[in-house]
Nucleic acid binder design. Structure first.
Lengths: 205, 205
DNA sequence: AGCTATTATTAACAACTGTTCATATATAAT
DNA sequence: ATTATATATGAACAGTTGTTAATAATAGCT
């Protein structure tokens, strides 16, 4: 008789609380999401929540953790080498970004980020360092390599990184807004590719 | 004896409620701003609020009205003529946008917009039509004229309008974030000019 | 002056908030 | 089977929420 290896899942309730909270927080924000609402959705009484989390704030912080550990900067990737591909590198970057934008889970996280950005100082700082700075740094590195190899015109790498990233962010915001109201984001979907095309034409030699 | 013409201000309390509410809403959002907090700041009891506004929602809607009637599209301006100036037109546009970004009142409105964007469907629609569409339409018109007059390369006016506007939005978001935490936005301030420079080089003939 | 309309106050309401407590039930270890 | 631990329940707390009603003070008009 084959032995079935059973994964011991320790307290699936805690996971469920986190999952439910993520959805609710990203739909209505921190304030409008009550502990009772979370408990009800999980299927327990509100007091049982406190067996798993110290308080509401702790749940939120746990949820917020997930916002920035996106599969963005793939660790295995060697930027300097990848950047040699020039336009293809940018296309890949945007494709990753696009996948993120249309991924249900990341969509929730992005919405939560937008909602709480001006309510939570820590989140603001994380947005600046984890989202903005990290991406600018990575892109700058890539653009620098491209300049060294005469793939693109010489100019401030940080500046063009900023130009490149900002449009991606704006498209993402618009897509997320549309999809929140169940509107089709098909038209916007091609905007990503258009952006790479335009941008590459602007910087290439 | 010279007769002093006195301006009759009818119920300054109502104005004060609106002013205080704008600040509070833009600092903490709709939910976290209680009627009592507004009343206290105005200097009256909470029940007196209801002599001026039907309910909390009505106050918010009144505040929200101010978000999009920004002095953006100056009515007197003839786009087609202004667009003939090419780069200077873009510089003027960005200067206007920059002024808006650093104006205390508009800063509050922008923050409020960001906070409530995912909480209020009407606001979302207004953002799309009043902010995005309106600006894209205006810019497209200008770029079209520039193409006709061989000031810039021929390409989809809507697409390059999108490229132009998205970066402005992102800079504005960053500036507003920094200033909210009383951080200096000096470094970002020049980003506006850099953007025009880069963009013009990208599209000019 | 007195009358009227406006705007203020005080008090109360019902509903909801985050959290705690004593207690019951289920699960795992001995 | 007994014990210990983890997780559930129900009830209660003190505070806050939006809103209303009765009533008092104020200002403008005749």
């Amino acid at each position: 008789m084959p032995q079935v290896t059973q994964v011991v899942k320790k307290s699936s309730t805690k996971d469920k609380i986190l999952k439910v909270s993520t959805t609710l927080f990203s739909e209505s924000g921190y304030r409008a999401t009550s502990v009772r609402k979370i408990a009800k959705e999980v299927g327990i009484r509100e007091s049982a929540i406190y067996n798993h989390y110290k308080n509401k704030e702790e749940i939120f912080l746990e949820v917020a953790k997930g916002i920035f550990n996106s599969p963005f900067t793939k660790e295995g990737l060697d930027i300097k080498e990848a950047a040699l591909k020039g336009k293809v590198f940018l296309q890949n970057f945007v494709m990753q970004y696009k996948l993120l934008t249309f991924d249900k889970n990341n969509e929730n996280m992005f919405r939560l980020l937008m909602i709480e950005l001006f309510q939570n100082k820590e989140l603001r700082e994380q947005f600046m360092s984890e989202f903005h700075d990290k991406n600018i740094k990575m892109l700058s590195e890539a653009f620098f390599v491209m300049m060294q190899n005469s793939l693109i015109r010489s100019q401030d790498p940080m500046m063009i990184s900023y130009e490149f990233l900002s449009t991606l962010f704006y498209i993402r915001l618009q897509v997320t807004l549309m999809r929140f109201d169940n509107n089709s984001a098909n038209i916007l979907s091609t905007q990503f590719e258009k952006h790479v095309e335009f941008f590459w034409e602007s910087i290439k030699i």
